[in-house]
Amino acid sequence: MVSTLLAHDLLWGMTALQLPADAPGWAVESLDLGQPVVVRRALSSPGHIAVGLRGRSREQRYAASMPVATIQRRVRPEDLCHVQSPRDLPALQALTELRPLLDASGWAWGVSGSAGFELATGIEALHERSDLDLILRTPHHLDRLQARNLLAQLDASVCSVDMQLQTPCGAVALREWAGSSRRVLLKDDIQARLVSDPWQPSWEQVA
Rank of each mutant, 00 (worst) to 15 (best):
A42R: 14
A207Y: 15
L151N: 03
E204I: 06
A64R: 01
A192K: 13
R61C: 01
A91C: 15
L89D: 08
D9L: 00
L33N: 15
L151Y: 02
R175K: 14
D133C: 06
R148K: 14
Q164R: 06
L102R: 04
I135D: 01
V51P: 02
S160W: 08
G34F: 04
N149Y: 09
C159P: 05
Q146R: 15
L17G: 09
S45L: 12
Q72R: 15
L151C: 10
V161Y: 03
G122D: 00
D133M: 02
R61Y: 04
L154R: 00
A69V: 10
A7Y: 08
P46C: 04
S160E: 12
G34Y: 05
S65D: 13
T96W: 08
S180V: 10
A69N: 08
K187C: 03
A115I: 03
R99H: 13
L136P: 04
P77Q: 05
P20Q: 10
E204L: 13
R87W: 13
I71K: 00
P77C: 08
L5R: 00
R40I: 00
H82M: 12
G113S: 10
G116H: 01
E128W: 04
T138Q: 06
W26A: 05
L89F: 10
G52Q: 02
R137K: 11
V184P: 09
Q164Y: 07
Q35G: 06
M1H: 08
S196Q: 13
M1W: 06
G55S: 12
R41M: 07
D131K: 14
R76I: 03
A156S: 12
A21D: 14
A50R: 00
G25T: 12
L119G: 07
Q191S: 11
P90N: 04
P90F: 02
L119E: 06
L11E: 01
V38H: 02
L5G: 01
P86N: 14
S157P: 06
L33G: 12
D9N: 00
D131P: 12
L151F: 06
A64C: 12
G47K: 02
G106K: 14
L126T: 09
A50F: 01
A156T: 03
R129I: 06
E118G: 06
L119C: 04
R144F: 05
A125R: 13
A23C: 05
L31W: 01
T96V: 15
L98G: 01
L80Q: 02
M163C: 15
A7F: 03
S160C: 14
K187I: 03
V37A: 00
H141A: 10
H8M: 05
P201G: 06
V161C: 07
L119W: 08
V51N: 02
